[in-house]
Structures are given as structure tokens and as C-alpha cells.
Amino acid sequence: MLTIDRLTKRRGSALILSDVTFQARPGRVTGFLGPNGAGKSSTLRILLGLDRPTSGTALVDGVPFERLPDPLRTVGAVLDGSGAHRARTGRAHLSWVAAAAGIPRRRVDEVLAEVDLTGAARKRVGSYSLGMGRRLGLAAALLGDPAALVLDEPVNGLDPEGIRWMRRFLRERAEAGHTVLLSSHLMGELAEVVDDVVIINGGRVVEQGTLAEVTGAHRTLEDAFFALTTGARGDAR
């Protein structure tokens, strides 16, 4: 269970997040949706202890991320990019992550196979395509077989086949009882995957509920999204 409670973040005079509150529950895929710059990444970064909130809390199973006894086995995270230095090989990257978390080395080969990077494991990350980099990030997140996954724009950079694979993968994780929280600005790609929806715009949560509740009277989630986000900020898209 991921609990975001009254999160506010200021950078200088800019208000990045204002009173953001929502939860991501086990066994469900929670979609965190909003236009670029709405505050999705900032929220996820605070949840993962990368950025500090001005006020409010973000907890993993009731505990701040920094105090988790075994973070990599609790939450797997993929933020933008690969999260790997371009001069290292994919395998070397996963090896140090495994070493830091005390995870056996054989697990590195397992996750490489799982994201279909076995063939590129000895190549430098700098030579990877955008999609390969994303899959390497996912491999690192899966090393500890965590109970929760946090993914920032998971379908960015993936080809159509990769997007399909990702959707199936996320459903399987949720059905196995895991928590999945993903952010996206692409509605069409996500409507089929998510159970719960949180829509953020201009640093504020403008709507949340199950997929059916949020879609409501609108024809699709996409229509609902545009109605909510353009209405709240008043800028035409």
C-alpha cells in the first residue's frame, strides 16, 4: 500500500504540488494521470525519497521510503531514463544494484531474461535504444521481486509490441496481489490496464476513483481527462 497524504512541494516561489492525497492499493493498477508538468514525477520522486516535500507525507506500508528495512524488495521503481551510467554495461549496472541490496548474482541473469535483454547484457548502456534503456530500468526494479512497483511513464520509448508486453506484465503483477502505481500522460495506452485513476493537474488532484467512476458520463477515459484538465486550468489543448 502506497499512501500519499497532503503532499505540498514548493521550489522557490513556484508551487509544484498542493495538498496531493491518494492511495495505491495491493492487487490493483493505479494510474496517475496528468499533462506534462502537472506534478506526477515530483510526487513519485518524493514517494521514493529522492526529493523532499515542503509538507505532507508519502508512505510505503506506513513507513517513509528511507526507513524501509529492505527497500529494493519492497518497492521497485523506474523513473525517467535507464537510471544507469552510459559507460557501464547493462550487466555491470544490475550487478552493483544486486550487490547493494544483498540479492544473489543469479537473479541478474533472471531479470535480464525477463525483460529480454540477455543479448545486450554486455553492451554499454550508452549504445542502448530508448526502449532498451527503459527495459534495463525495469530489470533493476524487478531484482528484488518487490511487492510494489512505481513506474514513471512506463510506455515512453517502447514500440507497439513493447507497449503490449508492458500492459500484460502490469496486469499480471496486480493479479498476483502486488501494488502497481504508474504515471502517464498517454490516456489511450492506459485505459485497458488501470483499475483506479488519479488525475492531477497544476499540482492538484482534480479527480480520483475507479476507472468507471472517473470515466463517468464521458465516452472514454481520454474524454474525461481532457474535460477535467482543460477545465481546471483553462488553457486550451
Binding site: 520522486r45 521514493l48 525519497g49 529522492l50 521510503f65 528511507e66 524501509l68 527497500p71 529494493l72 518497492v75 521503481a77 523513473l79 525517467d80 531514463g81 535507464s82 537510471g83 544507469a84 551510467h85 552510459r86 559507460a87 549496472h93 544494484v97 547493494a100 541490496a101 548502456v125 530500468g137 533493476a140
Partner: peptide
């Protein structure tokens, strides 16, 4: 500074969050 290439620092801190 190699931490700040390719966003590696994000990975480092999600594995070892105690800074």
C-alpha cells in the same frame, strides 16, 4: 559526478535510501 549521468543517482537512492 558519475552518479549524475543517466540518472544513476535515482537508482542508487532507491536501493540505499539512507543518504
Amino acid at each position: 559526478t558519475s552518479e549524475y549521468t543517466g540518472g544513476q543517482v535515482q537508482t542508487s537512492l532507491t536501493v540505499v535510501p539512507r543518504r
